[in-house]
């Protein structure tokens, strides 16, 4: 008996070993190494890298650009997540109940299949001063154009509009999946009770979609932190960091300024944010949102 148990345990270990090794090498090990690296100074030929404790963090805490970038990330998340989630839900409801829904679904979903770089290339043409589509459109109404991506006041809304366009269709899929899993009797019962469409949505559908909404919310916030591809084409984080996001800032420190310890410290900040996101998902998933 015990021989069978050990054989089973051994087989289990062998089965998971390859995947776990790769995961450990490229997820867990780098997490630990990032934390250690962030405690060292940037080395140079005269003075090699040495332990400096939390100095890298202190430098960033005193750097207004760092706070600017963090603020941008918060604005980016606040500006894109609620709108794209609301649009996604409306899209899902429309696609579910309308004739021609295959065409609608295709139209909403298509931007999702495009590389972010391709989307940025296309949207760049909208925002280009003078010859861009937006300025031409304004011109026909006799309004003056502006440098949309070169102006700190407009650059973030421009990036957010594109991101919403790119993401809403993706989140629609999750709502669609949830809606398809609901029994049609629910709707019939609600209608029998004399429930209006809006009341049905507010009192029945919306609460039932809570777990999906939470799942989408977490993924949308995660995306707001990890999506920076468009910055490479559209703004490079400018003008003067007005559109810089944390992950792009990390990239700049590591691969443009070659300051690896600083990049490591920034990565730890990002990891901390993601950990908070994961934990809050865990807590909320267990508490409020279990209806089924």
């Amino acid at each position: 008996m015990s021989k069978r148990v050990t054989k089973q345990a051994l087989t289990g270990w062998l089965l998971v070993l390859p995947a776990v090794t790769v995961l450990a090498a490229f997820t867990h090990f780098p997490i630990v190494r990032t934390m250690v690296e962030s405690l060292y100074s940037k080395g140079n030929p005269v003075r090699p890298s040495h332990f400096i404790g939390l100095d890298n963090y202190a430098n960033f805490a005193a750097d207004p650009v760092f706070w600017k970038v963090l603020g941008n990330n918060a604005i980016f998340a606040l500006g894109t997540v609620p709108v794209s989630m609301a649009l996604a839900l409306v899209m899902a409801l429309w696609v579910q109940s309308r004739s021609g829904k295959a065409v609608l679904r295709l139209a909403y979903f298509l931007p999702t299949m495009l590389p972010m770089i391709a989307a940025a290339n296309i949207w760049l043409f909208f925002y280009t001063p003078d010859i861009g589509l937006l300025d031409q459109l304004l011109g026909t109404f006799g309004l003056p154009g502006r440098n949309w991506l070169g102006d700190p006041a407009t650059v973030m809304p421009c990036l957010m509009a594109m991101t919403i366009w790119k993401e809403a269709g993706f989140f629609m899929i999750f709502y669609l999946a949830a809606l398809q899993g609901m029994s049609p009797e629910l709707r019939e019962a609600a209608l029998l009770e004399g429930c209006g469409r809006f009341t049905y949505f507010r009192r029945v559908l919306f609460p039932l979609l809570m777990p999906t909404s939470l799942f989408v919310l977490v993924n949308a916030v995660l995306n707001a932190f990890k999506l920076v591809d468009h910055l490479f084409i559209l703004t490079k984080g400018g003008p003067s960091n007005a559109s810089n996001l944390l992950l792009y800032y990390i990239y700049e420190h590591a691969f443009a300024f070659y300051d690896l310890p600083a990049a490591a410290a920034l990565t730890v900040v990002l990891l901390l944010g993601l950990a908070i996101l994961a934990i809050s998902q865990f807590v909320f998933l267990d508490k409020r949102v279990h209806y089924r």
Binding site: R33, F225, K226, L260
Partner: peptide
């Protein structure tokens, strides 16, 4: 853990590796 900490986040150390 990797569901949250996607490889994109760890570009610096993974490049090192």
């Amino acid at each position: 853990v990797q569901l949250m900490i996607v490889p994109e986040v760890l570009i610096v150390e993974n490049y090192h590796t």
